[in-house]
């Protein structure tokens, strides 16, 4: 495993820890999109089905279990435990416009016309756009808690770091996963606007504000 992949996975774990930590310390899920978290749960379950029939490494299995369980737990926290602070009218992105096209793209572009491969591709497309309800919500409220912005930043950083990892693997291992690269680039582009605003507010010590 190369340094970019390792750093990407660390950023992903850090993002989940920030998310859970901020929910537990503030006892609130204010500003968090339940829809985005449900989409991530769908992403992880559809992508990591191979957990049951293919062993890659202990690291790989452990991380898959961690992502599936932490995403289900997050959905539980938002939907059940702290649901009093949900403002449903703010989190009103139409997720069918993300789920439908992701499934069609997974159906059209895959490495084999089998259910696991279609679901795997679907999960990549869906992951690329799953943050949109959260960003949409941020844009509507205009402001975000510092921890929420750190969470989104770490999450965006994860896929961004996978891009140099794919370059590395292309040259060092002669391995190239065109679907992962394409969806990873789309995902990073979706975050790019956020990265820029985050960069400006984080380095000037200002409260995070979207224009």
């Amino acid at each position: 495993m190369n340094i970019f992949r390792m750093a990407g996975d660390v950023a992903h774990i850090v993002s989940i820890i920030i998310l859970l930590h901020s929910i537990e310390t503030t006892q609130s899920v204010n500003g968090l999109s339940l829809k985005t978290q449900v989409l991530y749960t769908i992403v992880f379950i559809s992508r990591y089905l191979d957990l049951f029939y293919r062993y890659i490494s202990l690291y790989n299995s452990f991380m898959k279990v961690f992502y599936i369980s932490s995403s289900i737990y997050t959905v539980y926290l938002i939907a059940n435990k702290y649901n009093k602070s949900i403002k449903e009218h703010v989190d009103n992105f139409e997720v069918k416009y993300l789920l439908g096209p992701s499934f069609i793209l997974g159906f059209l572009f895959n490495y084999g016309f089998t259910l696991p491969e279609i679901l795997w591709s679907f999960s990549l497309w869906l992951e690329a756009v799953a943050i949109l309800p959260q960003l949409f919500m941020l844009q509507k409220t205009g402001e975000a808690e510092v921890l929420t912005t750190h969470y989104i930043f770490a999450l965006g950083l994860y896929r961004a770091l996978y891009i140099p990892n794919w370059f590395y693997r292309y040259f060092a291992e002669d391995k190239f996963d065109k679907l992962a690269v394409l969806t990873g680039i789309i995902q990073t582009v979706i975050y790019s606007d956020f990265f820029y605003i985050y960069y400006k507010s984080a380095f000037k010590g200002k409260k995070f504000k979207l224009p």
């Binding site: 992903h12 992508r47 490494s57």
Partner: peptide
């Protein structure tokens, strides 16, 4: 380059 169908990434 080999096509990556092992899906060893997360």
């Amino acid at each position: 380059a080999r096509q990556a169908t092992e899906h060893d990434e997360l």
